[in-house]
Design a protein around this nucleic acid. Structure first.
Lengths: 255, 255
DNA sequence: CGCCTGTTTGATATGTTTCAATCGACGTGG
DNA sequence: CCACGTCGATTGAAACATATCAAACAGGCG
């Protein structure tokens, strides 16, 4: 691939500049009944720690397309995803976009070190999050060793995932990328207790393309190819059956 | 690009399986006189903390091509680079390789969370490092808050760099990748006090290719193109003058 | 039903890879 | 000191995977 230069002006990403406009704030729901307890940042906290932690949170709800944070803006808050899906991306001056990752329930947003966001994040469908002041997190992580440790673990895990993605972008073929993508999505769904096999694909083909370093068309064609090969099946666009897992795995690894 | 599938068997990377064979161990030199104090992990430590830290270190010296760690092996040690350059990479079953990053003096190796290395690391030319048991680092970071904090910062910085590289691999053209590479190398040299403008390129064209998601030939051709355009100049292969910085910057950003 | 938006499919263009050959620097041995 | 061999870098020609351009298709909704 490459050719980015020429795919450029396809949109200039004038996307609805919703920013925080449609974003709505709500009271924080009790952590005890939280759907993502156990898998989220807060999972490692004791009962008392959790109380202290939860007291600092407030809830946020986003509509599809809403921007949660923007690259370059001051990094004032950290977030924990409760429901829905977000895409994190970087833009180039001419509009080329690279999605660096998707966030699902239980995922944490706010591992940055510097004052400014290194990427933007936007809702894919409706999203619920809980939110905390970054400065509060910093001081809390000083008080609660478990929390600091958990944050470090999350960062380390994230590092490993990004390295995997670098391998994908640098060396895998379109088919291998798509296979990897489907399997990763499926495994993540399983981890948070969702259905793993007819795997839910909340984002559009263009988002998948911008994540995998491909175009919408190539993603679509690749899905079709896998479908014709009997490796995957489809009810709707957004729900895909993984039929031949073995083949999919070996495709993903590039064996 | 893409086509990885077909570039595959070009070598199967049978590379000299030197592992730790040529690796030699030495006593640890005093931290006070260390060339990379201030920029390395240990930079944030007080005098007493440094003594405690340094007492745990031993020195390692590698020859060109020596493998320091291998993907999948247990992660027993962490390292701080004193001199030279290392490449960190992941391999696919068929031999395709992706270099995830280069390490220079002052850089830290060992931010992993799990028991196993997520990548391999190999010396590019002669390398000097100091080494510590991972378990010792873990306990020390419990005792020394500064250290824990420093490690977290390093991880966060690393996250940001990997995201930049993901943008590069996913969306930049060959020329933009090479321009970015040269500038990054130059800036890092400056940060550690080395000469920034005739920038030293210790690694070969093939390593650069495997880092940028390109082939040796494309890297070489791109250098030639930049040279003909008067943007860079060359004394030797490994030392490159950045002549037109403005143009190089705008190329790198893809404006 | 017809519009709208996202997906799929087709035909063609192109940047990069692949295959192959030449060049250049460097070290070795006669 | 110069032929020779080696290894990495460079250059050329052709092949190819994916991008681009364009059109058809499908599903959801007013």
């Amino acid at each position: 691939m490459g050719a980015g230069q020429f795919m450029a002006l396809k949109a200039i990403r004038t996307g609805n500049q919703t920013k925080a406009q449609r974003r709505s704030m709500m009271d924080h729901q009790p952590c005890e009944t939280c759907a993502v307890r156990g898998i989220a940042v807060c999972g490692a906290l004791s009962r008392e720690e959790l109380d202290k932690f939860g007291a600092e949170m407030s809830d946020v709800r986003l509509q599809s397309g809403d921007t949660l944070i923007s690259e370059g803006d001051p990094e004032k808050h950290v977030f924990s995803v409760l429901s829905g899906c977000l895409k994190c991306y970087k833009l180039m001056p001419d509009g080329r976009r690279q999605i660096t990752g998707f966030l699902f329930p239980g995922d944490f947003l706010g591992l940055g070190k510097c004052e400014e966001n290194t990427f933007s994040a936007e809702a894919v469908g409706e999203v619920g999050l809980c939110r905390m002041e970054r400065t509060r997190l910093t001081s809390l992580s000083g008080e609660i060793p478990n929390l600091k440790h958990r944050l470090y673990d999350l960062a380390a895990e994230s590092l490993s995932e990004l390295q995997d993605h670098i391998l994908l972008l640098g060396r895998k073929t379109a088919q291998e990328r798509v296979a990897t993508f489907l399997l990763t999505l499926s495994k993540r769904a399983q981890l948070r207790g969702d259905i793993a096999n007819p795997v839910e694909i909340p984002m559009g083909r263009d988002d998948i393309g911008d994540f995998l370093g491909l175009t919408t068309e190539t993603v679509s064609r690749t899905f079709s190819r896998l479908r014709k090969a009997g490796i995957i099946g489809t009810d709707r666009d957004k729900r895909i059956q993984l039929i031949n897992m073995e083949e999919l795995e070996s495709l993903a690894e590039g064996a």
